[in-house]
Simulated assay, not measured.
Amino acid sequence: MNSHHALQWLPSYLVPFVSLSYPTPPPVNPDSFHHSAYYKTGMLDGCLIITCIAVMAVLRDIIRIFVLEPFARWKLTRTWERSNSHHIQQNGKKNDLINGNGHAGHANGDSKPKGVMSARDARKIHRSVLRFAEQGWSAIYYIFQWSFGFYVHRNLPTQALNPTELWSNYPHIPLAGPLKLYYLTQTAFYIHQVLILNAEARRKDHVQMMTHHVLTIFLIVMSYFCNFTRIGCLIMVLMDWNDIFLPVAKMFRYIGLYTLCDITFTWFLISWFVARHVLFVIVIKSAWFDGPRLISVGWVPELGHYYSEGTYDTFVYLLVALQVIQIIWFWMICRIAWRVISGQGASDDRSDDESEEEKKSQ
């Protein structure tokens, strides 16, 4: 469908903000998306990215404030009330035995009314509610976006274990509508994440996260305009797969479901290693050796050929840099895994420390 024809009622300057730009006739014999509309790339694509960032910001706040935070507050308050009720019953039985008169006294002379939440507990619950909601948005996004990316990947003639099709018949232009939309929404998400990182309280790994997001944005944009979209799509699908499980594990932890947290975290650890240190390394190896071997045409920008020694080396070196960051993170993840194995439970080294927040608030 040509969305420009469907949006004739909009002023022309608003159309790029709500639809894919640069529609073009489909290729004669496409190897994928046979019934899709096709598009070229250009600077107007940034308009739709801006819209996606705004939509993500609104959706994040709506879901966080009206769905995730109320649920987490209800769950944690309910857990606290049950724990407190059990504590009162235990104290009551002890006092009955001590007094011998059937009336529970105040242990240790504590005159504070039972059933009233302390300021410390209220701060702890409030912090967990906020963290649960933040991680909930990430989990929701990655679930939907990975599903969309997997659909796009399944319709492309590419395979993670045999990635030579990433380079055959380069350049792969024009772009099918779903692939282009996937790229633009992913770019919008990582720009949105950069804005969030700088708006919220800084975590221990702020520098690493910023480096990762900026590097990812640069790789997405570079692969988009240099027509390396098939390798870009495969990499994003690999990355998003295990990004589903870490926020879910954190969500379980913040609402006190520690066993589910440890199980989910263990699965996250396995999926991370397979996706980011096995399959991603295979992709990097293919980029290093298969790309120069299979791409036969050099730098001809007017025909969509952006392969040159300089641009391609830059692209590969950035992929290697991304892997280095992920190796550092994997080491941190293994430290958390050791805590799980040793029975201490999963905790996130990369998050801010609860005790530090409490000291600041006192």
Score class of each variant (00 low, 15 high):
Arg202Pro: 00
Ile231Leu: 11
Pro178Asp: 03
Ala122Tyr: 12
Glu200Gln: 06
Leu156Met: 14
Met210Leu: 13
His172Gly: 02
His206Asn: 04
His106Cys: 13
Asn162Ser: 15
Val152Glu: 07
Gly109His: 11
Ile235Thr: 14
Phe132Leu: 04
Asn169Ala: 08
Gln145Leu: 09
Ile143Lys: 02
Ser168Tyr: 07
Phe189Asp: 04
Ala139Ser: 13
Tyr142Cys: 10
Phe132Thr: 04
Gly149Asn: 10
Arg127Ala: 09
Asn227Trp: 11
Ser168Asn: 12
Leu184Asn: 04
Ala199Asn: 02
Gly115Glu: 13
Phe218Glu: 05
Cys233Ala: 15
Leu166Gln: 03
Met222Asn: 13
Gln208Thr: 09
Val221Pro: 02
His153Cys: 11
Lys124Pro: 00
Thr164Val: 09
Gly177Ile: 00
Gln159Ala: 11
Pro174Asp: 00
Ser111Tyr: 03
Lys180Arg: 14
Tyr190Trp: 15
Ile173Glu: 03
Leu175His: 06
Ser223Tyr: 09
Gln159His: 14
Thr216Glu: 05
Lys112Ile: 00
Ile235Gln: 11
Leu156Phe: 09
Gly177Asp: 15
Pro157Trp: 05
Pro178Thr: 07
Thr185His: 05
Pro174Gly: 03
Gln193Asn: 08
His212Arg: 01
Leu234Pro: 03
Gly149Gln: 08
Ala133Val: 01
Glu165Asn: 14
Ala176Lys: 05
Gln186Gly: 13
Lys112Thr: 02
Tyr182Lys: 06
His212Ala: 03
Ala176Val: 09
Leu179Phe: 04
Asn198Tyr: 12
Thr216Gln: 03
Val129Pro: 01
Ala160Arg: 06
Ala201Val: 10
His212Pro: 01
Ile220Lys: 08
Cys226Tyr: 15
Ser168Phe: 06
Tyr170Asp: 09
Arg202Gly: 03
Cys226Asp: 14
Phe225Tyr: 15
Phe132Met: 04
Gln186His: 09
His192Trp: 15
Phe148Met: 10
Leu234Arg: 04
His206Tyr: 12
Leu166Asn: 11
Asp110Ser: 01
Leu184Met: 11
Lys112Asp: 00
Arg202Tyr: 06
Asn162Arg: 12
Thr187Trp: 14
Ile220Cys: 06
His126Trp: 07
Asn108Tyr: 14
Asp121Leu: 04
Arg203Gly: 00
Ser223Arg: 09
Ala199Met: 09
Ala188Gln: 02
